[in-house]
Simulated scan of single mutants.
Amino acid sequence: MRPARPEPPRKVARPAHAAGRAPNQVRIVGGQWRRSLLPVADKPGLRPTPDRVRETLFNWLGQDLAGWRVLDAFAGSGALGFEAASRGAADVLLVEQDAELVRSLNASRERLKATALRVQRGDGLAVLRSAVPGQYDLVLLDPPFNSRLAGSSLAAAARAVAAGGWVYLESGEVAPEPPEGLRLHRQARAGAVHYALFQAA
């Protein structure tokens, strides 16, 4: 008598983020907190900047941001702002509207003892528009994916950034034409992510 055939393995349900959602952690790629992990909540439109994109951005900027004033206007996981603080930025403001994400950002700030980093709950675009002209050396713009905030946030950042400073924009579409006061420095694409770095005149 033949032995019974083993049952075929059952299909295991994939975790939700395997279908294109954000993983539950993102890794800081450089600076004093290199390899430290930041939690990522499962939120609509939240897509943390991929490691290789962040690495490219800080290669463009230079790895030493000592003394820089930085605004991360749509902080989300905080990956971009924490990268800037990790590389020595003197003052980094993370702005986030979601209360749960604000709590998570504050917890990461305390865990890493990131004293140069502040977290503010609010509307990133409104904070940009209310900034003192030339207040920041670097403005990081990664609005919720497909939110169509790229153009308006870039225009607001052009006023908030200091002469010679930088504005980084990441979105699901090709960067718009730079507003008056900014010039395109570099741009690239990684999958569905388009990213560009502008410099203030």
Results as ranks from 00 to 15, higher is better:
1 M>I: 09
14 R>D: 15
18 A>M: 14
19 A>N: 11
21 R>N: 11
22 A>M: 08
22 A>D: 05
25 Q>T: 11
37 L>N: 14
38 L>S: 04
42 D>R: 15
42 D>L: 13
43 K>R: 15
45 G>Y: 01
47 R>A: 01
48 P>S: 05
49 T>C: 04
50 P>F: 03
64 D>F: 05
66 A>M: 14
70 V>Q: 08
82 F>M: 09
83 E>N: 08
85 A>S: 13
85 A>H: 13
87 R>G: 01
90 A>Y: 00
91 D>H: 14
92 V>N: 13
93 L>G: 00
98 D>N: 07
99 A>S: 12
102 V>Q: 01
102 V>P: 00
106 N>A: 07
110 E>Q: 15
125 L>W: 00
126 A>T: 01
132 V>W: 14
137 D>G: 10
138 L>A: 03
138 L>G: 03
144 P>Y: 02
144 P>H: 00
146 N>A: 14
149 L>K: 13
150 A>F: 06
164 G>A: 10
165 G>C: 06
165 G>W: 04
166 W>A: 12
170 E>R: 10
170 E>T: 01
170 E>G: 02
171 S>V: 01
172 G>R: 12
182 L>R: 11
184 L>T: 00
184 L>S: 12
187 Q>K: 14
189 R>Q: 12
190 A>Y: 12
193 V>P: 07
194 H>D: 09
197 L>H: 08
201 A>I: 09
